[in-house]
Write a protein that binds this DNA or RNA. Structure first.
Length: 270
DNA sequence: ACGTCCTCCTGTTCGC
DNA sequence: TGCGAACAGGAGGACG
């Protein structure tokens, strides 16, 4: 899925198109795309106007007059803004019809993404968002250190754990480990507090750069025609040759996720 | 409580 | 070329 920078790019792009638009009808073409009762979702939101779009980690939060709903894009979710006359494509699973003749459609080839009605006032404190750790810029090094300094799990796996920090996915986890010059399989407990401080700083820096570039486009991500450029700056993810030492990039599976690193430049050091 | 595996889906790429 | 296996920006649940 899009990671935090891609979701942030979608949020900013979408805001330009749909703030102030009134939903006159909602059509669900694939029931499971909505968590919980679909009738409740449709009934609650129909007639309301979209006032804002928030983001928590990789979740988008659409704020309406009385209610809100969250949307997680998982691997391939995206939003299309189209004229109502445009035929539905086979991967568009939910349509918001607006009063101005346009539509917002949720498209998701793999159908992994989910939308869910939430309480507009308390959503940050309710499931599922209350389980998320801080985004890197809000992270307290002592708190992060406390969560990982006893763990035998690879540091890369810990970076993907959204309850420790939220927003980092597989691409940026690989990039962060490269910048840290740390072997992604290094157990979390090998990191000193000083290295955890660095880890947070590097995470912040890489996500911020990616946001500035409009995210990373590898497979399917794009925000209504806005294609991210960060893939131009990837150091290890999907790369073959290390830019630093010219040696080969190793690819191996770490806990089921494709993991790229340079075995010369990245060492198991805390 | 923690770590590992499976599952949800479809499309594309890889290897024999 | 053909065909099945493996893999893809994710994460929740089952199991030992």
């Amino acid at each position: 899925m899009p990671e935090l920078p891609e979701v942030e790019t979608v949020r900013r792009t979408l805001k330009n198109f749909i703030i102030g638009k009134k939903i006159t009808e909602i059509r669900i073409h694939y029931d499971k795309i909505v968590s919980g009762n679909t009738d409740t979702f449709v009934t609650a939101l129909t007639g309301q106007t979209i006032r804002d779009i928030d983001r928590v980690g990789k979740y988008l939060v659409f704020i309406l007059d009385q209610d809100a709903f969250i949307s997680h894009l998982r691997m391939e979710g995206k939003y299309n803004i189209v004229d109502a006359s445009k035929p539905l494509n086979k991967h568009e699973h939910l349509t918001f019809v607006f009063s101005d003749g346009t539509e917002l459609r949720y498209q998701d080839t793999r159908k992994f993404g989910r939308l869910e009605l939430v309480n507009k006032v308390t959503y940050r404190h309710d499931l599922p968002l209350c389980k998320l750790g801080p985004e890197p810029w809000d992270a307290d090094p002592n708190a992060i250190y406390a969560k990982i300094h006893k763990s035998n799990l690879p540091i890369k796996t810990l970076l993907l754990d959204q309850t420790i920090m939220t927003g980092i996915g597989n691409i940026y986890a690989n990039e962060i480990c490269f910048t840290m010059k740390i072997d992604p399989t290094t157990p979390g407990k090998r990191l000193s507090k000083k290295r955890v401080v660095e880890l947070i700083a590097v995470s912040k820096e890489i996500l911020a750069q990616a946001i500035a570039q409009g995210g990373t486009t590898i497979h399917s991500f794009d925000a209504n025609g806005i294609t991210g450029l960060f893939q131009m700056q990837l150091q290890v993810h999907t790369q073959k040759i290390c830019q630093i030492c010219n040696g080969p990039i190793t690819k191996e599976m770490v806990r089921g996720r494709g993991t790229y690193y340079c075995s010369t430049c990245q060492k198991k050091k805390g």
